[in-house]
Write a protein that binds this DNA or RNA. Structure first.
Length: 185
DNA sequence: TACGGGATCTGT
DNA sequence: CAGATCCCGTAA
């Protein structure tokens, strides 16, 4: 992951995101949608300078950058590239591999991880996990998984600058992708 | 110290 | 398409 985020982002598709809760239970999810944010990119939180909020992005690769957006949702990023370079990959959607018992009753869980805010909510990811290293000793980590047979590259979502950069990737066969096609290449 | 916008989501 | 809701960067 110690490489530029536009290189890492498509590679994270198909990888597993694992979350261990306080009671020891673990939920495995599969990453199906990512976006890259990098130095020189006006949409990147680390575009201007290092601040208290974006400090983790300037650190070493393989750490979690988590922030609060619109006062009520969290977004989870994987920090990439060398120290000093503020860059990260936003995880925009996951598929749940193991659905917790308290969900099975409710029925529709295919799209529970469909969106950066929704996946954080369902996996209980908030700012208390900001800055942790992503390894199995922590409540949040990654594992290699099978690469999708098909990957679509498009422009990013929800930003007002850097709109033209084609730094969003997703697995078109997944029902969990947040917005199937914004602008295909 | 004040102000305002933001890598979102839901219900109308 | 408006509303919820709050943190933090920027300017004063």
């Amino acid at each position: 992951m110690s490489r530029p985020s536009p290189v890492v982002a498509p590679e994270l598709l198909g990888c597993y995101l694992l979350r261990r809760f306080a009671d020891g239970s673990v939920i495995r999810s599969r990453i199906v949608e990512t976006e890259a944010y990098a130095p020189g990119d006006p949409a990147c939180h680390a575009y201007k300078k290092q601040t208290a909020r974006n400090a983790v992005m300037f650190g070493a690769a393989g750490y979690a950058y988590i922030y609060l957006i619109y006062g009520m949702y969290h977004c989870f990023n994987v920090v990439t590239d060398a120290e000093g370079l503020g860059s990260a990959v936003l995880i925009r959607a996951v598929e749940l591999m193991e659905v917790p018992a308290w969900f099975t009753a409710t029925g529709k869980w295919a799209r529970l991880g469909s969106g950066p805010g929704k996946l954080c909510r369902v996996l209980g990811i908030d700012r208390t996990l900001n800055g942790i290293q992503l390894n199995p000793d922590q409540p949040l980590w990654l594992e290699i998984g099978p690469t999708p047979t098909q990957i679509i590259q498009t422009t990013r979502i929800g930003i007002s600058q850097g709109v033209e950069l084609p730094w969003r990737w997703y697995d078109p066969t997944s029902p969990a992708v947040s917005k199937p096609c914004i602008k295909k290449l």
